[in-house]
């Protein structure tokens, strides 16, 4: 493995510019990803993990914007790239897969065409050749009968199959970095297992680095060599995965690990003990995140209205 990092994120700040006092939702986040390495970013909803990923590929939704820091990809700061150059990079060198494959795929195009588009767009192939490559790409993600499935539409496939198609599209151009944002949260556990194994297998075979974002510590533990824990927009702990689980240092990480009912943690009748409660540290996180994140489901904009209360 080469020593030069593939991605070097330094002091990233994401916030809403020009709003009186600047309100940063992601604060001073920095980490590096080496070529071929799998890096996990774990945190709860509103911790800023998805915003961090979106700012890497400059897909933040307005009014959010990167308000500070450097995003060095192969030594070049992505913040200085033109929009055109950034578009060329996305899908070619940096690919992304999302949580819900049904919304990320175009419902009106066959999956074969959506894969072929990547070859046409980034490799300048003709449609005929690209279609042939699409069959290979589907075969590589273990979709059965790929010659027939290239003509299928997304709605004709199961969730697991759609996520495989997303992976085929993402990896079509052999990117250097794959960003996977909660790639299996919408899937059943046995399907999740298959999809995670597929991502691990393909990326290690091609030397693709992975930035895996998840709220599920189990998924991260099984997939990543290093983990960053995000909390309230900050990276509170960044460690080798084994060290983190064996000896979590930050109180939030400790709380997170203790709050999780884990398989095999209950022993005998007395084992139905209370779980660790890590509330109290979470007072204003929720108001912050809900106000500005795209995930916010809440029509109320005024954080003062949600002050007080238990959970």
């Amino acid at each position: 493995m080469s020593d030069a990092p593939l991605l070097d994120l330094r002091n990233l700040h994401v916030g809403i510019p020009g709003r009186g006092a600047p309100l940063d939702i992601v604060r001073d986040v920095g980490f590096t990803i080496l070529p071929g390495e799998a890096f996990g970013l774990v945190g709860e909803s509103g911790s800023g993990k998805s915003l961090t990923a979106l700012s890497l590929i400059r897909l933040l939704k307005k009014p959010l914007a990167v308000s500070g820091g450097e995003i060095l990809f192969k030594g070049e700061d992505l913040r200085n790239l033109s929009d055109k150059a950034m578009r060329r990079l996305r899908g070619d060198r940096i690919a992304m897969i999302f949580q819900e494959p049904m919304t990320a795929l175009n419902p009106l195009k066959t999956v074969g065409r959506q894969i072929a588009e990547m070859f046409v767009l980034h490799r300048g192939m003709g449609w005929g050749e690209a279609q042939k490559r699409a069959v290979d790409a589907l075969a590589s993600v273990h979709v059965p009968a790929p010659e027939e499935r290239v003509r299928a539409y997304p709605f004709q496939m199961s969730g697991g199959m759609r996520q495989r198609v997303m992976i085929a599209i993402a990896l079509a151009c052999d990117p250097d970095l794959l960003i996977a944002d909660e790639p299996t949260t919408a899937l059943d556990v046995t399907v999740q297992d298959e999809v995670l194994k597929l991502i691990a297998e393909l990326c290690s075979a091609r030397g693709t680095a992975v930035l895996l974002i998840s709220h599920d510590l189990g998924v991260i533990a099984n997939m990543c060599q290093r983990v960053g824990v995000m909390y309230q927009g900050r990276l509170v702990e960044e460690r080798d995965t084994y060290d983190l689980f064996a000896d979590p240092r930050h109180p939030y990480t400790q709380g997170l690990l203790g709050a999780l009912p884990r398989l095999g943690s209950r022993h005998g009748e007395a084992g139905r003990q209370r779980l660790v409660d890590i509330d109290g540290m979470i007072a204003d996180r929720e108001s912050l995140s809900r106000e500005f994140c795209s995930e916010a489901r809440n029509p109320v904009r005024d954080p003062r209205q949600r002050a007080g209360g238990g959970a």
């Binding site: 556990v189 046995t190 599920d216 189990g218 533990a221 099984n222 084994y242 689980f245 884990r262 095999g264």
Partner: peptide
């Protein structure tokens, strides 16, 4: 058995030998 084996479990990294 399949269901239990496929649960992603953070403990497997600490005890890779202890496959339930």
């Amino acid at each position: 058995r399949k269901l239990i084996a496929t649960i992603p479990d953070p403990d497997t990294i600490l005890h890779p030998d202890r496959d339930r």
